[in-house]
Amino acid sequence: MLGASLKRLWHKLGSPRWFFSLTTRWVTFFGWSAAVLLLWGAIWGLAYAPADYQQGNSFRIMYVHVPAAMLAQSLYIGMGVAGFIGLVWRMKLTDVAISACLPLGMVITALALFSGSVWGRPTWVSWWEWDGRTVSTLVLFFLYVGIYALREAIAEAKLRARASALIAMVGTVNIPIIKYSVEWWNTLHQPASFGLTQKPAMPSEMWLPLLVMVLGFYCFAGFIVLLRMRSEILQREMNARWVGDWITGRGAP
């Protein structure tokens, strides 16, 4: 009884149409939340947070760098989880999610690398420093590129979905190992440089705006991913009746 209804719910969750109608409001919610949070966090962080006693004002790039780095990793893990669900339960929607997360993830990872580099200039007096976090992010970028290249190479949609799901899953399992190995490498081969974000005592006026920015970035990602997923669904379901009805205003999805 419970099993059957769970199964029905699961089936429903996998249905693109149901997802489309469910997320109509979510897009608006995430979009506005992202706008408000990012604006609020940016003004607070850039104008009102106190300057760092060591780094001066240059530390403020943290308000972009840290959320970007966190989000870059979350999006990849999200792809891995989606891949796992897609492979195990053969759900169509998961590939839509992967295809939506992939380009955003690549751009955000690039942003994390770029902002790290800009931050590194005044801090380390060099545009590029082989810091542990930098290396981890760079490897993450290559993991994204690998899936991107794989997807480009496979013409058939269902096989592309399965192959990229598999590789995203393998990559996700390896992320902790890669992170640990890079940390190990960093502590051994790097002259002790002070960490960028793990200040022992960051005052709350400094980290509260960061928290707002992190939330803002995640809402922004939710907004973009949902938007992309929805347009991907429309494209894939182009010939379904409900899409036609929705576009011509004859019915709700």
């Binding site: 490897v139 290559f142 993991l143 590129v145 690998g146 290249a149 794989l150 190479a153 590789i167 393998v170 990559g171 390896n174 190992i177 890669i178 640990y180 190995s181 890079v182 190990w184 490498w185 051994l188």
Partner: peptide, 21 residues
């Protein structure tokens, strides 16, 4: 070949780190 390299070389990194170390 190139795609294979892009897919597996990042995964080889931990082995490289500990092997060389």
């Amino acid at each position: 070949g190139v795609i294979l390299a892009l897919l597996v070389l990042p995964l080889f990194l931990p082995t490289l780190v500990f092997g060389a170390d």
